[in-house]
């Protein structure tokens, strides 16, 4: 069986047309990202990834791997190649502009104590 080094990084697949599965062997199962809702009322949260032939199998495997101790009540799976991630090199442009807008935070406003909790 011939294998290749995969130079795609996790969460990086959006920029590349083919994604992770096509670079592995023909019979290799693609990579899926797993999101678990730990209880009703909370968001699904990324917990890790696993390989599976299709979405149904990804859910079944995620059940076995990520919810063995009742860690979840709902599972989302998405093939890793469909995730587009922001580039850390662009962190400045993306997040810096929020830094000088401190008036967006409630603590920016000094109110007299008489107002009480607001």
């Amino acid at each position: 069986m011939k294998t290749y080094i995969n130079k795609f990084f996790y969460g990086d697949y959006g920029e590349i047309e083919t994604g992770v599965s096509s670079t592995s062997t023909e019979s290799s199962w693609p990579l899926w990202e797993i999101f678990i809702r730990s209880k009703q009322g909370l968001d699904h949260k990324h917990v890790g990834s696993l390989h599976a032939a299709d979405a149904q199998m990804a859910i079944e495997n995620a059940r076995d791997v990520y919810t063995r101790r009742m860690e979840g009540v709902s599972i989302w799976v998405v093939e890793s190649k469909y995730i587009t991630a922001s580039n850390p090199d662009e962190a400045g442009e993306l997040y810096e502009p929020a830094k000088d807008k401190i008036y967006r935070h409630p603590t920016f406003y000094n109110l007299p104590d008489e107002v009480g909790h607001m």
Partner: peptide, 15 residues
């Protein structure tokens, strides 16, 4: 869990 963590560094499970 660990194979998945290693995969984020650009090596495939098969390898």
């Amino acid at each position: 869990y660990l194979y998945s963590a290693a995969e984020t560094l650009g090596i495939s499970r098969d390898e």
